[in-house]
């Protein structure tokens, strides 16, 4: 794979086929954990690692797995990696384990991971599968970061826990609530669609 191809893939993952903004996958974790930058980033990184690793393994075993049990095998691989990540987070980043709680084990049912396993990794060789997992993971993580930064600033007046508007700023709690996540996500999707369409028209 050349640099140019990777660049195209990256643009695909980040913008044109962004798993959250375009495919609208993995809404559960996207809306629930993006209350602050730390949570959003932690979730993004954890999901990217699981996605990349499971894509690699699924691509390696794709020729041995009969099609009747492919979903079962994929889920076993995915949940294995999620449990591994969960144990590692609990041992080495306990703060993240505290704030993400149940959403770490729920990465198993994040449909981005199963979707990429089924749609890409089960039909392609290991290297492209790893790249696909990585760019899709980055697309997911970057959206989560943007969403959580916006929500944290408006909802609490902080970035990464640092107060930016002074002590007297009372955040708009609505944005910090689940309803605010929907509203913010809608605005982000609309904005990116606008710019993507505009650049398409120019071409």
């Amino acid at each position: 794979m050349t640099k140019g191809e990777f660049k195209l893939k990256l643009i695909d993952g980040l913008l044109l086929n962004n798993p959250v903004l375009v495919q609208l996958l993995g809404m559960c974790s996207t809306l629930a954990v993006t209350t602050n930058l730390f949570n959003g980033l932690g979730m993004g990184i954890a999901t990217t690692i699981v996605l990349t690793m499971s894509n690699l393994i699924i691509s390696l075993i794709r020729k041995f797995v009969p099609k009747q049990i492919r979903i079962a095998s994929f889920i076993v691989v995915i949940s294995g990696f999620v449990t591994a990540i969960e144990l590692l987070i609990r041992a080495y980043v306990p703060v993240l384990d505290k704030s993400l709680g149940i959403f770490i084990p729920l990465i198993v049912v994040n449909c981005i991971i199963l979707a990429r396993a089924e749609a890409f990794a089960s039909k392609n060789p290991p290297l492209p599968s790893v790249v696909d997992g990585l760019v899709m993971g980055l697309g997911f993580a970057s959206t989560l970061v943007v969403l959580s930064v916006i929500r944290e600033i408006i909802g609490y007046g902080t970035i990464g826990g640092l107060n930016i508007f002074g002590e007297n700023f009372k955040g708009a709690t609505l944005i910090a609530m689940p309803a605010g996540a929907f509203i913010t996500l809608g605005i982000i999707i609309a904005t990116t669609r606008y710019f993507v369409n505009k650049s398409k028209q120019k071409c």
Partner: peptide, 9 residues
């Protein structure tokens, strides 16, 4: 196949 995958994980 499923047994091998599960034991590996």
């Amino acid at each position: 196949v499923l047994t091998v995958i599960s034991s590996g994980i």
